[in-house]
Design a protein around this nucleic acid. Structure first.
Lengths: 200, 200
DNA sequence: CAAAATAGGGTACGGCTAGTACCTAATGAG
DNA sequence: CTCATTAGGTACTAGCCGTACCCTATTTTG
């Protein structure tokens, strides 16, 4: 704790706090993210934290967002490869330490939709926009039925993988699971979409 | 805490403890489930708990299982109705206070597959067996393609709903979401399953 | 440039919880 | 009757969140 030459304020201090929180989060997970340690790591004390975030969870989420990386959707020219590649990316993310942290935060957020939203939005690889883009290109190539261009349908693959992630533990889903999702569910679904009203 | 005439032991005491834990869980959720309160409610102390369950989480899961109800798959004679009915049931469960508790427990279980398994197995409405049964009958009636009789495919509907439950907060998914899952995804998928290898 | 307002820093504390230790008392088996 | 087992009582450690209080550096402003 060497005295600092000049006292940090405002954005500078806030960055340092967030950085410290993110580091602690990466090292110890949300369970190990304690306000005291974050403050100490940033070279200050809890007051600075509580002036900016209402509680530990809010700080945790903010720090997680700092850790989450940005993402470019693939464009391999084939729907199957685009989908697999995007799933693999998400799978890697969820299977990494970050995935475990995400679990903890989602858990802690409980039913607070507002906070949950801040978590789901991360990692564009899971958003509807990404999948609509991928699928849109596939439709243009004639690989998928235009009817499938609907968020509920377009995101089925990632939704199923997320479900795997949630119900199984965090460890990486084998590539076979990804292929199953794509080959057994996603591709059949977007290719041959029979009209719903065809029968009853 | 009036002295009991006779001191409870073994199974009798264990039941009382579990009952007390389940009641506390129902009243206060997992966050409010404290060992001291459970012990006091059962008219004993923490020793009795720690002799039986290694920690709070294990007790919480055991108590949750006590609360989870059993379930009979519907048989309405139409796949669409069977699926919708089963989804509605799960939706009610997940939207009830029990659903919130399940969230907390899944969160606390983190990546411990062993514990997670104890949670997913509950409520037969979410298991593969149930969906294979429903779908099997549909195949027999000619409502679904035999190829669809595969766990990954059969459980798609409930998997998607679980995903809703996890990413949104707990509040009940509107019936429209359920219908969307069934009409836009599930039925098209199980009816017209194009061969996967048809293309690449 | 002085004074007032603002924000950072240090420290301590209340209240709560998990889990452990240790001892006494009831119970049941042989 | 004896003894091993198990229940009950109580106290304790250690950790954490969130808050309060007061002092000090920096900035603002008059």
């Amino acid at each position: 704790m060497t005295k600092r030459a000049t006292r940090r304020r405002g954005a500078e201090l806030e960055d340092a706090l967030l950085r410290a929180a993110a580091d602690e989060l990466a090292e110890s997970g949300y369970a190990g993210l304690t306000m005291d340690r974050v403050a100490r790591r940033a070279g200050t004390n809890k007051n600075a934290l509580y002036r900016r975030w209402p509680d530990r969870l809010a700080l945790g989420i903010a720090a997680y967002r700092l850790l989450a990386k940005s993402f470019q959707p693939p464009d391999t020219g084939a729907l199957r490869e685009d989908a697999l590649e995007t799933l693999r990316l998400a799978n890697r993310h969820w299977s990494s330490p970050l995935g475990a942290i995400l679990r903890e935060l989602m858990a802690a957020a409980g039913s607070a939709q507002e906070l949950l939203a801040q978590l789901s939005d991360r990692s564009a690889d899971t958003t509807a926009a990404t999948w609509l883009l991928i699928l849109g290109r596939a439709v243009a190539r004639g690989e998928a039925h235009p009817e499938a261009l609907h968020p509920r349908v377009a995101t089925v693959a990632i939704d199923l993988l997320r479900n795997e992630f949630v119900t199984r533990g965090a460890p990486t889903a084998p590539d076979e699971v990804l292929r199953e999702i794509v080959d057994e569910v996603y591709l059949p679904l977007v290719r041959a979409r029979g009209s719903v009203t065809e029968r009853g």
